[in-house]
Each structure stands twice: as C-alpha cells, then as structure tokens.
C-alpha cells in the first residue's frame, strides 16, 4: 500500500535576475552570452530545486535599459520557466530596477514566511539614473535586507563600486576575504557564475549543504554562508583564447 500522500512542508525561495539590457550589451555578443548562460543554467537549477524538497524555487527577472520592466513578472517554478531572449538597447536605469524589485519584495505580495530570496544583478556599465535612491528603497525592505545579493560584472567597463554597494560592504573577517562582485571577462566565466548562482547558491539558501569547519557557523555578514566559487575549469575549446570583453 502506498505511503500516505503527504508532502514535506516547504517555503518559497524567490530568485530574481536583474539584467542590464543597455546598448553596450549588444557589443561583442554580451547580450547573447547572457541569454545563453541563463538558458543553459535552467536544467541544473531545476535539478537543485528537485533535490531540495523544503524549498519551492520561483524565478523572476527584471530588465533595465531606458526603463526598468519585468521580463518575467510572475514568480515561476523553475521547471516551467522558458527563457525568452533579452534585447539590448538604451541606457542603464539600474536604480529604477532596484525600485521595481523593492516593491515586489514587500509583504504582500511577498509571503509572510519564506526562505531568503536570492537577487542576482548583472551589468556591464554604469547606472545612468539615481542608483543611490534605488538602493535605498531596496534596502528599506526587510526581505531585501535578508536576501542573498550577488553581482556579476561583465567586462571591464562595469561599475564595480556600484555593484559592491548592491551586495553590501562587508567587513573583512578572519580567514575570509570580503565578498566582491564576480568579474566575468568572457562567455565561459559568465556561464560558470550564472550556473553557480542558480545552483550552488540556491542550494545553500534552500536546504543547507554539508558544512565544513571553515564555514563560519555564525557568518559575520550575510545570513547564508555562500558556497565555494566554481573552480576555474580550463576550457578545452579555448585554444584560440577566449573572447575578452
């Protein structure tokens, strides 16, 4: 006879991409690389979601150029997600994007109980609007304060200082270097970071993974201990040298 039809109680885990779609993203195939990286990461993300019965992983995405707008507005279970390509063109309304996310993280519409949300900001340039006001609006929202905030800088023109303010400035703790924006200088490293954020970080925020003694059990800052970054896997197809942004 079957085991009674009961399921493990679970909590939503909101995962939000904030994608820079400014005109500069059209250069050197950056926009295509980002679309590819996210699309390729979805099966792995779905597998992590399956393995974590305590979490209901729900994905959304914001695009920002001249204005910020929802690219995926409905929190979508990752196995039902279809990634439509983002198009580049315009300036960099990053502050507006943060305000859009701030509104979405208010309760309601946010659930009363959830896992820490994961916010991933990807940009190749500098905000052209009031970034500080956007960040302030975001960080006033309790769910944004609790969120795991990651930033990926595409190429050398990305504003690392702005991205660092988004993820938070963390005092250096013994044995751990403070968190920095991830710097992707080519399509391969971008894909690895997107994959890391959508699998390892989602795993860490939903059902905790094995802990080793070096993982501080009481992290100084950030309420989820972040997993190791992926090892630098040498790309065997890279004989001609990676395209560097």
């Amino acid at each position: 006879m079957p085991f009674p039809d009961v399921k493990l109680a679970n909590r939503p885990l909101h995962f939000l991409y904030l994608c820079d779609c400014s005109g500069s993203m059209a250069a050197s195939g950056k926009m295509q690389a980002l679309n590819q990286a996210i699309r390729q990461s979805l099966p792995g993300m779905a597998a992590v979601a399956r393995d974590n019965p305590e979490a209901r992983v729900l994905v959304r995405a914001v695009r920002f150029a001249d204005h910020a707008a929802w690219h995926i507005e409905t929190p979508t279970p990752v196995d039902q997600l279809e990634w439509r390509d983002l198009q580049a063109g315009g300036i960099t309304a990053m502050g507006e994007a943060l305000k859009l996310v701030a509104a979405a993280l208010q309760t309601p519409p946010m659930e009363v109980r959830a896992l820490p949300p994961v916010l991933v900001l990807i940009s190749d340039g500098q905000p052209t609007d009031d970034f500080a006001a956007g960040l302030e609006a975001l960080l006033r929202v309790p769910w944004a304060q609790k969120a795991v905030r990651l930033a990926i800088a595409l190429g050398h023109d990305a504003d690392l200082e702005v991205l660092q303010r988004f993820i938070g400035i963390e005092p250096a703790t013994a044995g751990r270097s403070p968190r920095r924006p991830l710097q992707a200088s080519n399509a391969t490293s971008l894909a690895q970071y997107i994959q890391w954020a959508s699998t390892a970080v989602v795993g860490a925020a939903s059902m905790p993974a094995s802990r080793v003694s070096e993982t501080p059990l009481e992290p100084a800052a950030g309420n989820i201990p972040l997993p190791d970054l992926p090892p630098t896997v040498l790309d065997p197809t890279d004989d001609v040298g990676p395209l560097v942004w």
Binding site: A114, L115, P116, P142, W143, K146, P208, P219, N223
Partner: peptide, 9 residues
C-alpha cells in the same frame, strides 16, 4: 518569517 542561518541555529 525568514528561515535563514541564524533562524536555523
């Protein structure tokens, strides 16, 4: 409300 590391602890 937020089931994070300090809450699990």
């Amino acid at each position: 409300r937020c089931l994070d590391e300090p809450a699990r602890r």
